[in-house]
């Protein structure tokens, strides 16, 4: 939208300049040209800075990729090469995917699968419960709604670091430590931030639509599933991918509760792998790249949802 507008503006401007050119007097023309000159210079400087910043973001990834394909000798030589001159080696990836460490799978692969089954259920269920609550807060009338909403507001104020140790102690007491339950169960009840975001989105859906559905015989649950969910797919997807990426990249939680190899999530498995292949840099970089790729791919595919989800979260 905005891009198009900007584009149109510039087209109009250039058209105006071209049309007016013929009748312009000489001095004005010169001034205009020099203004154009500084504009071009500004543009060039701007693009140079933007490209440099792009390199600053991307070159580290390039270094990871190149190193992961190097042979051990080349990676561990004092002169860094920007290309695997001694030939490509897939030894690093072989170590990531083949060498058995725990059970039948490798540490990294086990970690990846663990991450999936530990993270996906709470993400989906949490999204569902958050959406239900958001629907109730946005569209239903019931006693104590404002009080409940206030309580929800207050939960965001409680610093996680205060409840961390007591929660850890309680989980230890009831035998949840060493199991994935502390990472899974709390998330299933939904997250306050997610409720806020979805509530905002749901409020934007016209009440008339819901009333019409009610007249057609849909109950509250029916309205939620057949009207609210389909109409708010982008918002739900945005929250879903953000939640998944957050869970996938979480390190602190698994570090507290799940450090035994068979249950390690990917982030912990990666640190284990790195310690095991200490100073074998091609392997470490291969592991790093494998750990990075899934979220980057999800981001590239679902980019629109990421940007919208984040941009609207800050525009309260």
């Amino acid at each position: 939208m905005n891009n198009e507008e900007l584009f149109e503006n510039t087209v109009e401007e250039t058209a105006a300049v071209q049309g007016g050119e013929a009748v312009l007097e000489a001095p004005r023309k010169i001034r205009k040209m020099s203004a154009n000159g500084t504009n071009i210079a500004k543009k060039i400087v701007m693009y140079i800075i933007l490209v440099l910043f792009t390199l600053w973001i991307l070159v580290p990834f390039y270094i990871v990729i190149v190193t992961s394909f190097k042979q051990w000798d080349e990676a561990n030589s004092t002169n860094f090469t920007w290309w695997p001159t001694m030939g490509f080696s897939f030894e690093g990836y072989a170590q990531v995917f083949e060498k058995p460490i725990a059970n039948a799978y490798t540490a990294i692969l086990t970690g990846f699968l663990n991450t999936l089954w530990i993270i996906i259920p709470p993400t989906l269920l949490g999204l569902f419960t958050s959406a239900l609550a958001a629907y109730a807060f946005a569209k239903l009338r019931f006693r104590g709604k404002n009080i409940l909403f206030g309580i929800l507001l207050a939960t965001m104020m409680i610093p996680g670091m205060v409840t961390l140790v007591p929660a850890f102690t309680i989980y230890d007491l009831i035998g949840w430590r060493g199991t994935p339950l502390p990472l899974m169960i709390p998330g299933m009840f939904g997250a306050a931030a997610c409720v806020f975001y979805l509530r905002q989105f749901f409020t934007g859906i016209p009440t008339e639509t819901l009333e019409a559905a009610k007249l057609d015989g849909l109950g509250y649950v029916g309205i939620f599933f057949w009207i609210m969910v389909p109409l708010s797919k982008p918002a739900l997807i945005a929250q879903g991918v953000l939640g998944f990426v957050g869970g996938y990249n979480d390190y602190f939680g698994p570090l507290l509760y799940l450090t035994s190899p068979p249950l390690q999530t990917l982030q912990i498995a990666l640190t284990t792998f790195v310690n095991q292949y200490n100073s074998n840099w091609p392997s470490i970089m291969a592991g790093t790249l494998v750990a990075l790729l899934p979220t980057v791919i999800i981001y590239i595919v679902a980019q629109k949802y990421f940007i919208e989800g984040i941009a609207s979260s800050g525009l309260k």
Partner: peptide, 20 residues
Amino acid sequence: EELMGWGMSCIPILGFLIFG
């Protein structure tokens, strides 16, 4: 409506009470 409202909105709050 009241019942539905309570039922739907109380899940995250229940979670907060237990885990927060």
